[in-house]
Nucleic acid binder design. Structure first.
Lengths: 129, 129
DNA sequence: CCTTGACCTTCCAGTGTCTGGAAGGTGGAG
DNA sequence: CTCCACCTTCCAGACACTGGAAGGTCAAGG
């Protein structure tokens, strides 16, 4: 099948599939006589795998590692779990950081009357620290 | 003062100060005879303002708007509050998304025994959706 | 057979926010 | 005069795409 259909079936855009090929995340696709890339079920499955991993926030580098483990029938599940847990921890750190920022901003916005007058605790805080 | 000292006092690296100048976030610095950029208290204050806003997660574009409001003594505090509240909402959306991902991943990692054996629910889930 | 339009190809450039590094000039201390 | 820290500009890279230009391919309709 052409790249467009592979895109539809996998959820990865044609543009992004080509990009993944260019950076070596996926092997170069076979070509038809026309020069068009040709995909089969295996390739689409791999793209779906990538799509799901990316939507869980794994970096392309993580995905590359996960793909290698996926292909390696003798892999240790511990290796996969380690990648996943490291990612969970990164997410948790990010959530803590965002919540802290959110708290600060909510505090500031509550103290700002938010009307036509110029005095604004938000700007004051940013200015004076 | 030289850019290095302005960097130390403001918390924005020299490299980043030059970058901010290049994209027009801050006006071009005055120059000494040597060609070195020259900063005073006003510039350092502006850089500190930028630094604090950035560390609260405002985009450079947001900061540009906040700077304009900061300089505008007749601004409406409502304008500032609107930017801040929009940012709070974006943060909240992000936190919800991250927590959902975290939940999925924790569920998967709990089901993965994580040892030397090859069977792994994480990869299975990524593969089959 | 020809046109049309949807699809495909490659390549270049831009997004946002810096960061690193190379090549070379300046300033002050010893 | 040498040395070293600092400054300058410019180019490239990081992440993960996304957009667009210029042009080739394919199938359907007239």
């Amino acid at each position: 099948m052409n790249i467009g259909e592979a895109a539809k079936l996998s959820g990865v855009s044609a543009k992004t599939i080509r990009y993944y090929e260019s950076i070596g995340l996926i092997p170069p696709a076979g070509r038809k006589e026309s020069g068009y890339r040709d995909y089969g079920r295996t390739e689409v499955e791999m793209l779906r795998f990538i799509h799901r991993a990316r939507s869980l926030g794994f970096s392309v580098e993580d995905v590359s590692g996960l793909l290698a483990l996926w292909r390696d029938r003798s892999r240790a599940s511990g290796d996969v779990k380690a990648i996943a847990l490291a990612h969970v921890e990164a997410i948790e750190r990010k959530v803590v950081e965002l919540n802290s920022i959110r708290k600060t901003l909510l505090d500031l916005t509550c103290r700002c009357h938010g009307d036509d007058r110029p005095d604004c605790p938000i700007l004051e805080e940013l200015a004076t620290g």
